[in-house]
Simulated scan of single mutants.
Amino acid sequence: MNDVVIHHRGNIDLELDAALLFYRSKAGDIYATQHTARVVDDRPVLLPGTPMTLEGLADFVELAARRTSYRGFVHDRVVYLAPNTLAWWLPAGTRRVWFKTTSKLADRSGECNHPPLLFIVNRRSWSVFALRHNERPGAGSRLYQAPYFNVWDDGRICVGNADTPKTISSDSIKPYEDAFFRSRFTHANTPRLIRRRGGAVRLWLDLLEGAEFPLHQLIDTKRTLADVINNLTDKD
C-alpha cells in the first residue's frame, strides 16, 4: 500500500478513523458499507462494516459539500446550479464588441444590440446559446445558435487566451461575461451562424450601425435547456 500524504494549512494531527467501501453491480446499482479503521502494528486494519444508511450518506455528502460546492446567495439570473456546473441567462441589451477579422468587419468595435443569452460552464467547457424570448428560461426553453464568431455549433466557446475564472460559482458570472464580450471575435467556427443574407458578417455590420437584433433569424438548435444540461451532467 502506498503512503498517503495529506497537506493542510497549519499544524494538525490526523488519525485514521473510518473508511467507506462502495460496491457496484453490473446494472449500475451502488451499495456502501462503513468500517471503523484502526492502525495495528503500523498497518491500517478495517474492522467489520455496517450498511451505510441514507442518513449517514447525507452527512458524508454534506461534509464534502462544504469543501467542494458553492454556498451563498444564488445570483438572480442563475437557472441551474450543481457541483462544477453553472447555467445563467443574460437579458437582451447593449454591449460593446471587438472584432479582428479578415472580413469587412476588419478590426471594428462598438456598442450594439445583443439577443438574450444563456451561458453554461462546467469543468470541461464553456458554452453560450441565444434565446428567442427575453425572459428567464426554464427546463423546456428552446436554445438557439449564438451568432458570434469563435463559437461552435454545439455552443462551445473557443477560449483562446481569454482570462476565465478559476472557480465555478455565482461569483464568477460577471467575470465570465466580461471575458466573453471583451475578447476579440476573429472568425466563424461554423458555416452558418444566422438565417440572414450575407450571414454573420452582414449581421454584425448592421448591428454596429445600430440595427435591432433580428430574433426571428436565430437558428434553432433543436435542443432545450434540459437537453443540454442533461448531456453535460451525464458526462461528469
Rank of each mutant, 00 (worst) to 15 (best):
Y31D: 00
A87F: 13
I12C: 14
L118V: 05
R66Y: 08
L21S: 01
H114N: 15
T167L: 04
V121R: 15
E111P: 03
Y80L: 10
D154Q: 01
L57C: 03
T53Q: 03
Y70W: 03
Y70V: 08
P44D: 11
L225N: 07
Y80P: 02
H187E: 14
R123N: 09
P115V: 05
D29Y: 01
S127P: 00
G49D: 03
W98Y: 12
D206Q: 05
I219D: 01
P137G: 01
S141L: 02
Q217H: 04
K26H: 02
L203Q: 00
S103G: 09
G49I: 10
M52W: 01
F181A: 13
G160L: 06
F185D: 07
R156S: 12
K26L: 12
L57E: 04
G198L: 09
E111H: 14
I194Q: 00
K235P: 00
D163K: 08
H187A: 13
F185M: 13
D17W: 09
P137K: 15
P48S: 08
D153Y: 08
I173L: 12
V228F: 06
S109N: 14
G10L: 11
D29L: 01
D154K: 04
L54T: 11
T224E: 08
Y144W: 12
P48G: 10
N2Y: 06
L225R: 13
S172I: 08
T53W: 15
R182S: 10
G110M: 13
W126Q: 11
T53A: 02
A106D: 03
P191K: 07
R71S: 12
H7Y: 14
L193I: 10
T186V: 13
A64N: 08
V78L: 15
K100R: 14
T33H: 00
S127A: 12
D29W: 00
K104C: 04
A211N: 07
R156Y: 02
I194P: 00
N122G: 09
R196P: 01
E177M: 12
I157T: 10
L205E: 12
C158I: 10
K235C: 01
D41P: 06
T190Q: 11
C112W: 15
K166D: 06
N113K: 15
V121C: 03
I120G: 02
L20G: 01
T68R: 11
P165R: 01
A130N: 03
N11I: 12
P44V: 10
D171S: 04
T190R: 05
V5C: 09
A179I: 07
K104M: 06
G210V: 11
F180T: 00
R184F: 06
T164L: 15
L215V: 13
V45G: 02
N161H: 12
H114F: 06
L86A: 02
V78H: 01
A32C: 11
N134I: 13
A200T: 12
N189T: 07
Y144C: 04
V201W: 11
D59K: 14
W126M: 12
V61R: 05
T233R: 15
R124K: 14
T164P: 05
F99Y: 04
L21W: 00
G140V: 12
T50A: 15
A188K: 04
L81I: 08
R124V: 04
R95K: 12
L207I: 05
N134V: 11
G160D: 09
E62D: 14
Y176H: 13
V61Y: 05
